[in-house]
Amino acid sequence: MDVTIYHNPMCGTSRNTLAIIRHAGIEPTVVDYLQTPPSRETLERLIAAAGLSVREAVREKGTPYGELGLGDLSLSDEQLIDAMIAHPILINRPFVVSPKGTRLCRPSEAVLDILPNTFTSAFAKEDGEKVLDAEGRRVV
């Protein structure tokens, strides 16, 4: 299965999402979007395919969101995309693309919706939170 993750290795949610993908037996294409930011067209496509508004795709925590005045609700989608292109840290993460769809995987287990259901063993996040039980079933 061809899977791409727009990854920030410093982000726990992104690391957990990548680990879940690999637990599924898939070695994804990993795009460190801070080092290799997506083009405007790619970013717009990711946001639309994930069914998000542009504002929902903007990350506030740990970014220059406040300093840039991005909380101003009168800003257009184009202005928000411009800010995300200029400051890739503003792109919420991780976005994952698979043949089954595109998701902003927050929380990380949202990636399960777009992966094949081939899990046969337990999986827990870095903090120990269980995501899959011993039979590979999603823990609710």
Score class of each variant (00 low, 15 high):
123 F>P: 12
11 C>V: 07
37 P>A: 03
41 E>H: 11
35 Q>P: 06
38 P>V: 08
104 L>H: 04
130 K>I: 10
64 P>R: 05
44 E>G: 07
62 G>A: 07
83 A>S: 11
73 L>P: 10
106 R>K: 15
74 S>V: 08
134 A>Q: 14
79 Q>T: 10
102 T>V: 03
12 G>I: 05
128 G>R: 10
60 E>N: 12
2 D>R: 13
109 E>P: 00
25 G>Y: 11
68 L>V: 02
97 V>E: 06
62 G>I: 06
2 D>M: 14
33 Y>E: 09
137 R>W: 01
26 I>R: 13
62 G>P: 09
117 N>Q: 15
26 I>A: 07
33 Y>W: 03
52 L>I: 00
86 A>L: 06
7 H>T: 13
81 I>N: 04
69 G>A: 01
105 C>H: 12
42 T>G: 05
109 E>M: 02
107 P>M: 01
113 D>E: 10
128 G>M: 08
25 G>L: 13
51 G>F: 04
52 L>N: 04
115 L>A: 06
27 E>H: 05
139 V>H: 00
60 E>H: 14
45 R>M: 00
132 L>P: 02
69 G>D: 02
111 V>R: 13
38 P>C: 09
75 L>Y: 09
88 P>L: 03
5 I>G: 11
109 E>T: 01
140 V>A: 13
91 I>V: 15
119 F>Y: 09
127 D>N: 13
56 E>K: 11
114 I>D: 00
11 C>T: 09
72 D>W: 07
11 C>K: 12
97 V>N: 04
128 G>L: 12
20 I>V: 13
121 S>G: 11
45 R>E: 00
10 M>N: 14
18 L>I: 05
69 G>M: 01
36 T>E: 14
139 V>Y: 00
67 E>Y: 05
93 R>P: 01
40 R>L: 04
20 I>L: 15
74 S>G: 12
16 N>D: 15
26 I>F: 04
14 S>E: 00
99 P>T: 06
99 P>Y: 06
71 G>Q: 03
34 L>H: 01
1 M>V: 14
83 A>H: 05
13 T>M: 06
134 A>I: 14
125 K>I: 02
110 A>F: 07
11 C>R: 12
99 P>L: 05
37 P>Q: 03
34 L>E: 02
43 L>G: 00
107 P>N: 05
48 A>L: 08
12 G>D: 05
60 E>L: 11
43 L>I: 03
